[in-house]
């Protein structure tokens, strides 16, 4: 079990102007990002800003969890496939969740360990990430809003492993949602 300091967080629902805020953070309108990727990048950059960072340490791990992934991009690309057998190259790329990782790297000038993970238990992504050797983590839970009742989320935590002699923190809350994590500075997992 380790103890983790929360350096930054973005846990709120995306505000109505989240795309404008993303443009402001990037300095220009992003290109080639599908909607899921844009939403994820928005939350990741807000979280980094909350931690007072523009770039992750070299040895950090980025882990993004999602239940639906880039669902809209996949559906659009499949519609193109059914139309004439030809998905647009960017449409095909945007249907892959790992594009968020590459765009995050490009946007922040960072290069390092990053992955996307699907799991029905949201905290499994956190648990798996903390089992590795990385002492610096950026974790995201990203899902688009959809016609099937799921609402948009782009929740992110920037974590740092604390030394073994750090004063005892409370155990990890049960889910990456707002009430449990607000006001929390560190947790054990």
């Amino acid at each position: 079990m380790s103890q983790w300091q929360i350096l930054g967080r973005w846990l709120a629902a995306p505000p109505a102007d989240w795309r404008d805020r993303l443009v402001a953070r990037l300095g220009s309108r992003p290109r080639r990002l599908g909607p899921w990727c844009e939403l994820g990048l928005f939350g990741a950059l807000e979280c980094l800003a909350d931690a007072g960072e523009t770039r992750l340490p070299e040895a950090a791990l980025v882990s993004v969890a999602s239940l639906h992934g880039p669902d809209r991009a996949l559906r659009d690309a499949l519609a193109q496939l059914r139309e004439d057998g030809l998905p647009l190259p960017l449409g095909f790329l945007q249907s892959q969740p790992n594009q968020l990782l590459a765009h995050f790297c490009a946007a922040t000038g960072w290069q390092g360990d990053a992955r996307t993970l699907g799991t029905r238990a949201p905290l499994d992504a956190l648990r798996i990430a903390t089992q590795g050797a990385a002492d610096e983590l950026l974790l995201g839970w990203v899902d688009e809003d959809g016609k099937h009742g799921h609402v948009a989320c782009s929740r992110w935590l920037r974590l740092r492993r604390q030394p073994a002699d750090a004063s005892a923190a409370p155990p990890c809350p049960g889910a990456p949602d707002l009430p449990a994590w607000l006001g929390l500075d560190a947790f054990r997992l």
């Binding site: 193109q80 139309e83 030809l86 998905p87 647009l88 190259p89 960017l90």
Partner: peptide, 13 residues
């Protein structure tokens, strides 16, 4: 080059 591929498929379509 990625734009070239994108335009190429769009032209085909």
């Amino acid at each position: 080059s990625l734009d070239a591929l994108q335009v190429s498929v769009a032209i085909h379509k």
